[in-house]
Design a protein around this nucleic acid. Structure first.
Lengths: 242, 242
DNA sequence: TATTATTGTCTCATTTTGTTACAATAATAC
DNA sequence: GTATTATTGTAACAAAATGAGACAATAATA
């Protein structure tokens, strides 16, 4: 059972990252949360930085291991560096629940500074995979998160705040939707992120006014009503077949 | 001459901070830049984080040592973590120019991840003090910076970008002006930060509309014209006597 | 062919912003 | 004193952006 722990020789001590991975299921904004074996502890997916690895690459690597997704839109939003934030007791609990013997002074029990990133991914492309210490990884709606360990609750809060503030600017980098989408779907994303309803006509006019969308064929869903157009972002190659 | 180098026992390895300290002289935005002894190298003021010290506190401490200012408006804006960023040769040059013998493997020559902060301070309250390794610290206008070492040029760029994006929101935390100031002075700050001229009447209406200013007595400068009012930010105690 | 739900667009009201104008000063020159 | 000058505070109107509602144009179904 007991796997090999990350070694201090391979990683930079005292430095970690945590990632807030946002996904969208069509109506709600969700986040990927890990649950550790036999501990009842919930946490953000995180990891360590190799000694010869760029910080950004370390996060991409962790994200790929967990979601299978490559070259994801990632944004660093804050570095958490209070002394109070790490909790050796929590770390020890996690490790021991996994049958690791943890000697006093193990680097994993030290103080950690954590660089936090958020990612916007397409919920449907993803097959979440737990890491060695966790028994599950699941999507949770942002208003129904379990209590998170250490300061991970604060990290999520700050991620959401940053995302809300930058929504306009980050629209284009957005990966929450498939490459072709309807105006309605885009509006739902906005509403899920901002947490408020928007007016359809104003929203449509504003988005079209930004001149960042390319219009494609119509989408016939079988509903008894006029069919909406599909759009894609001008700066991205749309994948054919919706 | 040779002072004692910071010891690995006291500080967290591989972790540093750099600060972009903005000041305003009435017309231009300036930044504090260090010059290292006998090297011709220019750098941002930075430092290390003590093992039992909050990250934010470390930056406050460094700022206080360099400017004498306490409890400054500081904002963390990015963490720079590329492997290419540190340059052991540069660090060795700096240390050896200060008559330090640097053994191979010294922690100061390692890779460093740097958390970058910017500060907004009142130019006139400040008596910049160089640190042990530097022979001078000076204000430089943001469009006339000397070539900075390592990635410090990029750090400044990103600081400016962040400041411009957040100007509205950070207005209140602003310390670029004395506690009482005229509308004209405030407009000059905006123009210096944004790098563009603004229209007087629109600016005035907009700022007053935010309802964050308290109006005080008039300021008589001796000019042959109507005297402007002095204002202060509602959330800050104005210091009497302009 | 009528009905229903939803979409794209138009119109008009409201709000915000851009621009100009102008009266109200503080000093100075006469 | 009184005219002159530079700058400020604010009003007034124009232009642009946004809010809110109306409505015709569909895709299905009854």
């Amino acid at each position: 059972m007991s796997k090999i722990l990350p070694s201090i020789d391979e990683y930079i001590p005292h430095l970690a990252y945590d990632s807030v991975i946002f996904g969208f299921n069509g109506e709600q904004l969700k986040i990927l949360i890990l649950e550790y074996h036999n501990t009842g502890l919930f946490a953000l997916p995180g990891g360590f930085v190799k000694r010869n690895e760029n910080l950004d690459d370390a996060v991409q690597r962790g994200l790929k291991e967990r979601t299978g997704l490559d070259k994801i839109y990632l944004e660093q939003f804050h570095t958490f560096g209070d002394i109070s934030r790490p909790n050796p007791a929590v770390m020890r609990t996690i490790l021991e629940a996994n049958d690791h013997k943890v000697e006093e002074g193990n680097w994993l029990l030290d103080r950690f500074i954590s660089v936090a990133y958020y990612a916007l991914i397409n919920y449907n492309n993803v097959e979440p995979k737990p890491d060695e210490l966790s028994d599950s990884i699941n999507w949770y709606a942002i208003d129904k998160l379990p209590p998170l360990m250490m300061d991970h609750g604060k990290i999520v809060e700050k991620a959401l705040e940053t995302l809300r503030n930058n929504l306009e600017k980050k629209l284009v980098g957005m990966n929450l939707l498939p490459s072709k989408f309807t105006m309605k779907e885009l509006q739902l994303v906005y509403e899920a992120v901002l947490g408020e309803k928007l007016r359809r006509t104003t929203f449509q006019r504003k988005i079209l006014g930004l001149d960042i969308l390319k219009r494609h064929e119509k989408l016939f869903t079988g509903g008894a009503h006029k069919a909406p157009y599909l759009y894609s972002f001008k700066n991205k190659e749309p994948i054919e077949h919706y």
